[in-house]
Design a protein around this nucleic acid. Structure first.
Length: 390
RNA sequence: GGGUAGAUUCCAGAGCGGUCAAAUGGGGCAGACUGUAAAUCUGCUGGUUAUACCUUCGAAGGUUCGAAUCCUUCUCUACCCA
């Protein structure tokens, strides 16, 4: 067991902001496991690298012997967290939320230690609350306090609507902390306000207030906006090795440094060629969520496909063409069946006219073309998608 | 409760009776370049059995040869007053 001060320096590493660091030290000095809260909003079922930053921190707590309390915000999800939103979120049905929560926790346990995690649903206590209890809860905070929050302030300033239930969100999330008696709450920097409300509510309940620990927000693949599924700039932790590797290779050098720091906790060596560094980063992350072997394989295949442009020897998905088939129809079908992306015929026609579609390295520019399909040919759809005809 | 403004394609935002699938910017995609990076340049960005046709401009009706544009009702939003 590490000493409290050793633990503290480990835990603080990589965080963006910690409020109550000396309180944390005191808590650690007691020697009993801390209750570390992480609230998740199961609005989307799949976890991506953005979520992993905070989950890895939680795991670090677990490795030091502390107790993780994972709160599934099945109740709060029905409100919709207004954080970072310029518009009101659509509410989800409870069934959808439970379904999401299930895959969410499954994926979270790829990172977290099952034995040291307590999973609770916040509908457990909120569903039972009576209206007078709700009002009482609301009486603990002021409108002005809630309006301090940047998202709300901005929306008000820009004449955009803020619905009352959204104002309630931080209060509701804060109450979770009281119920689970958390010692520390983790979250992204955008959660600072919500976590602080929890701290305030704990104080009014006579509890020892939780320590606020915010982790940096991971930018998405575009390097600008935060990683999120709805923006499509994410790398899911369950994605296939190839896919994960490819996505990571497409990031900018600047972003690479950031990813290395936030996801692996290491610096990029300036001596190394940036491309090599990027390959190492990508491989390390694939290895984390798959295996070292699949990381090596993904790297080898990527090099074949993209550096050497040797599509012939690369491992590609297969696609059977039955009989004569025009190019547009075939490409639409490949997108649909192999890559699970729907594209309209017009879209594909455009791709063809722009010279994206190639058969065995030959551009096919005429959408009316009906190629002589032979098995073993490589059909390239766009930069990232190619198949082998079987 | 009273008044005013407004709802346009992924987003922002023009258009205000025909030349509108709808300017411009952002985003996205493709091509060139490259380290499948970034930056840059160019093109594309509703659908289809594709030199034409079909469906879109909050919803439903109406006026008109013709409506995103005019009228009526409805729904929603913001602002001001209470």
């Amino acid at each position: 067991m590490k000493s409290p001060s050793e633990q503290l320096s480990l835990l603080v590493r990589g965080t963006a902001r910690v409020l109550g660091e000396d309180e944390l030290l005191k808590k650690l000095q007691r020697g009993t496991p801390l209750r570390v809260k992480l609230g998740v909003d199961p609005t989307s079922p799949d976890l991506h690298l953005g979520h992993s930053v905070v989950l890895e921190k939680l795991r670090q707590f677990q490795e030091l012997g502390h107790q993780a309390v994972l709160i599934i915000g099945d109740f709060t999800a029905q409100i919709g967290d207004p954080t970072g939103r310029s518009k009101t979120r659509p509410a989800l049905s409870h069934e959808e939320i439970l379904l999401n929560a299930r895959t969410y926790t499954e994926q979270a346990f790829r990172i977290l230690d099952h034995d040291r995690t307590e999973v609770v649903f916040n509908s457990e206590w909120f569903q039972k609350m009576t209206f007078s209890e709700v009002i009482q809860l609301n009486s603990r905070v002021t409108l002005q306090q809630m309006l301090q929050r940047e998202d709300f302030k901005n929306r008000v300033a820009r004449d955009q609507e803020v619905r009352l239930h959204e104002i309630l969100y931080p209060i509701v999330q804060g109450w979770d902390s009281v119920v689970v008696r958390s010692d520390v709450e983790l979250g992204g920097t955008d959660q600072l306000f919500n976590i602080l409300v929890g701290r305030a509510l704990q104080k009014t309940e006579g509890q020892e207030p939780q320590v606020v620990m915010c982790l940096p927000i991971l930018e998405g693949l575009d390097g600008v906006q935060k990683m999120s599924k709805s923006l499509g700039n994410y790398v899911g932790i369950t994605e296939e090795p190839e896919e994960m590797f490819g996505k990571l290779m497409s990031i900018s050098d600047e972003l690479m440094a950031r990813y290395a720091l936030l996801l692996l906790g290491r610096e990029i060596n300036p001596e190394t060629h940036p491309m090599e560094s990027k390959k190492q980063l990508a491989a390390a992350l694939v290895a984390r969520y798959h295996s070292a072997d699949s990381a090596a394989a993904a790297r080898a295949n990527w090099e074949l496909r993209f550096s050497k442009k040797d599509l012939d020897s690369a491992v590609l998905p297969e696609f059977p063409v039955t009989g004569r088939r025009d190019i547009v129809g075939a490409v639409v079908e490949v997108f649909q069946t192999v890559f699970n992306t729907s594209k309209s015929a017009s879209d594909v026609r455009r791709l063809i006219q722009q010279g994206s579609v190639q058969l065995d390295g030959e551009k096919i520019l005429d959408p009316r073309n009906e190629p002589d399909w032979k098995s073993g040919q490589v059909l390239k759809l766009d930069k990232k998608h190619s198949v082998r005809i079987s």
